[in-house]
Every structure is written in structure tokens, then in C-alpha cells.
Amino acid sequence: MKAVVCIKQTPSTTAVFAVDNGVARWDDPGGKPVVLNPWDEYAVEEAIRLKENHGAAEAVAISMGDDSSAEQLKTCLAMGCGEAILVADAAFAGSDSLGTARVLAAAIRKIDDAQIAVFGKQAIDGDTGQTPVQVAVKLGWTPLTFVSAIKEVTGSTITVERLIDEGKETVTAPLPVVISVVKEINEPRYPSFMGIRKANRATIPVWAAADLGVNGGVGAAASQADWSHIYPLPERNTVVQLIEADTPEEQARVLVNKLFEEKVI
């Protein structure tokens, strides 16, 4: 049994955005414009733990993206994944989540003995969180979303705890499964020095559409959503009214009066 972790390159959380001729652009004051999607760090860690603690033969990282996504795959190798594969083809550009799901499902199918696919709960760019379930449907596997703990993996089943709106749900399902993980599940490790050296020497194989037998249903032309209209947020047209008084009690009284007047209490 192998664990596959699907990761994505995203803008960093500190990125500052602007719109240029309808296209989103960003700069990062921290000088690191793209990163491994923060939610995916937990997925990578969990895939490695499946290998360390639950008998997975390997943790394989895959990413659908352009050539630059090899950098994030190297992070996965440095953390402890044994293999990394870049899934890239000009035909994939502009795919919607369903197109992405078709490509990732084909890539997972190509990995021998893959039984558990791990995702972060969403990516911080599109923020849709749709892909894990859609990949599961395309694979015919069971989706287990918002997983906060893997309780047990036997030869044929998995038991997990899910963090849903109603509370903590414990479910058992037969393998194979697609899981999406939330932040509570673990504390991602830092890449080790040896891991970084190994990752830097690694050559990352590239799987293209032809390698995956993906034929249509992907790319911008197949996208069923029109994403062309993107724009900055309206400014919050507020000028802060600072409440000044001699004592905290007086400040509190003035603020409370204002909030009652504004009818927000």
C-alpha cells in the first residue's frame, strides 16, 4: 500500500494582490512569492506518518502545475517523501476543479498500489476545497474530508476522525480512500539537512497528458466556469473614530453608547 499526497504551489500567505488588465498579480514583501500551499504541509506530514506508523510502503508526492512546482515537490522530498512526480502539460492550463480532478485521478491510478490519497483541505488561492471529493468520485474511491486524526489503518480499512460543523465524527471505510486533512491532524516537520541535500540532487519525473492517457475534459476550453472577471476588494470606506477619555470606564461608556446607537448589539 502506498500513500500519495497531492500538493499545490500557491502564493504565500503574506502576498499582496493587485489586478492588472483583469489578471491577478502579487508581490510578496517577504520575498517568497510562491510556497507549498500551507494546508498541504499537513497532508505531506500525514503521508509521511502513514509510511512511518501505518505500514505504507512509500509516500509519493504529486503536483499538477508548471515546471516551477518542482520546487515545492523538492520540499516534500526534503520532508521525507520517497518519490515526487510533477504532472505538467500545456493542455492542463486553465483547468477548473473538475479538469484538475480528472488529471490527478489519472496520475494516482498510474501509481502502483496507491491506496490512500492525501490532500490539504483546500488551497489558499482558489479556496474551493472541491478537488479531494472530485478526485475520489473520478477514482471511484471513498472520500473522507476534514480529517483531524487517522485512528487505525488495517490491511483493508481505515478509521478516521473528521472535524465537521456538528462536531467530531469517527468513521470507518474500506480502502482505497481519498482524505483531506485539517490543521489539527499534526505538526508538520521541518525538512532535515540530509533531506534537503537529497532533494536538491533529485530529478523529478514529469508526467504529461499522453503518459496519463488523459484525452480531453481538461484545460481552459473544458472549464465550465467563467473566471474572467476578477477585481480588487472595495475599500472599507471607514475612518476610525478613536475614543478618547480620561479613564477606561469613560471610554467604555462612550463606546458602548456608540455600539447601541449603531444597532450592532
Binding site: 477548473d96 476543479s97 473538475l98 480532478a101 479556496d127 474551493t128 476545497g129 472541491q130 478537488t131 479531494p132 471529493v133 472530485q134 468520485v137 473520478k138 472520500p143 474530508t145 476534514f146 472535524l163 465537521i164 460543523d165 475534459g217 472549464s223 465550465q224 466556469a225
Partner: peptide, 23 residues
């Protein structure tokens, strides 16, 4: 856009090959 609603929307869109906009 609850945890259940998000899962169900994604499942339905994938099974029908339909488009989905979230949030």
C-alpha cells in the same frame, strides 16, 4: 458552504460532470 454542503456539491458536480462555483 457547510462541511456537508461543500462535500455534496463537489460530489454532485463530479458525478454529473457539471460546473461548480463555491463560497
Amino acid at each position: 458552504g457547510s462541511t456537508n454542503g461543500r462535500d455534496l456539491a463537489a460530489w454532485t458536480a463530479a458525478e454529473l460532470d457539471a460546473g461548480l462555483v463555491s463560497d
